[in-house]
């Protein structure tokens, strides 16, 4: 495999292989010396067209643990508007002879566009509202650690589904396993036409009843302006996950959030910091999962 563009393009077997490799890397990360010489002499560039601290840091650490030389190339969207096209930026970077390009971009399909126009291995770190595959992989990895399986689980994804690449990547990943997937949120933030294997709930309590996993999505402050929701206060009141609601999910169910959180909006502090929360584990697992992805891609394959 040359690139990781989306979960869409992966088979169940591909996913299982990545998760197994991630497990091995997690062991490495628990050692005293956390660096492996595997990819020494190769170069990765983190090409970020959208501001991001967490994902970029996670990738950078993963790259460094694999002994890659790392470059960070952050472009604010405004300077792109002024001149250089994505194609030209890409060709410039390709001329540095890099082996891996990690890209985040505000346009859906941008990662595919980049992959089609370069010899380097491309890893999608989030393209518009399309996909964020490493997030879904690290989420699956975290669920597996706790639950030991994905098959047979009920998962509720709560919040701003239509604008969420995390929701999409998780949907595609979980759809490759025998899972029940629910979308929960106000109708304005759910897709107009529902994917076939998804159940829709407008009511949070009903939506999370008896599930094994609740994935909370970040609500963007600007959704109020687009009239998607009347106010954050109202959103929080009806769709924010609060402590009392934990009674409705399974006793051993887990709560996840891709970060960064708006405490007190989509998730209450009590829930975020509860023993059922996997949020910090997700962050830790992000590094091992990203190491696995980079390790398994082959830039020389054309």
């Amino acid at each position: 495999m040359k690139d990781l563009i989306g979960i869409k393009e992966l088979s169940r077997q591909d996913i299982e292989e990545i998760l197994n490799t991630a497990k091995a890397f997690k062991e490495v990360l628990q050692r005293d010396i956390k660096k492996v010489p595997t990819l020494r002499g190769r170069t990765a560039i983190n090409l970020f067209f959208e501001p991001s601290t967490r994902t970029r840091t996670s990738f950078e650490l993963a790259e460094k643990r694999l002994s890659l030389d790392v470059l960070n190339f952050s472009v604010s969207t405004s300077s792109v508007v002024k001149g250089e096209t994505l194609y030209d930026t890409l060709k410039t970077i390709e001329s540095y002879n890099v082996d891996y390009i990690v890209i985040r971009h505000s346009s859906s399909g941008a990662a595919k566009f980049v992959a089609e126009n370069t010899f380097a291995s491309v890893i999608n770190a989030g393209d518009g509202t399309n996909e964020h595959p490493t997030q879904a992989l690290l989420d699956a990895f975290s669920i597996l650690e706790i639950k030991g399986r994905l098959d047979g689980l009920k998962i509720a994804i709560v919040g701003d589904i239509i604008h969420s690449r995390v929701a999409r990547s998780n949907l595609y990943l979980l759809s490759k396993f025998d899972t029940e997937i629910r979308f929960v949120g106000p109708p304005t933030l759910l897709p107009q036409e529902i994917p076939d294997n998804v159940k829709i709930f407008f009511d949070l309590q009903e939506g999370i009843e008896d599930v094994d996993v609740v994935m909370i999505l970040r609500i963007q402050l600007e959704r109020q302006k687009g009239a998607y929701i009347p106010s954050l206060k109202e959103y929080s009141h009806f769709w924010g996950l609060k402590k009392e609601l934990l009674n409705y999910i399974k006793k051993d169910a887990v709560v996840m959030h891709p970060g960064p959180m708006n405490r007190g909006v989509e998730i209450s502090t009590e829930v975020a910091d509860s023993s059922q929360s996997l949020i910090l584990r997700q962050v830790t697992n992000g590094i091992a999962t990203r190491m696995a992805v980079i390790y398994m891609l082959n830039p020389k394959e054309v």
């Binding site: 509202t129 399309n130 999409r168 897709p191 036409e193």
Partner: peptide, 21 residues
């Protein structure tokens, strides 16, 4: 239409592209 770029429907959701109803 907002800033939609293709027909709104299952496919637009699948591709992560904003739909034009």
């Amino acid at each position: 239409s907002e800033d939609g770029v293709m027909n709104e429907g299952k496919l637009s959701f699948y591709l992560g592209l904003k739909g034009i109803p």
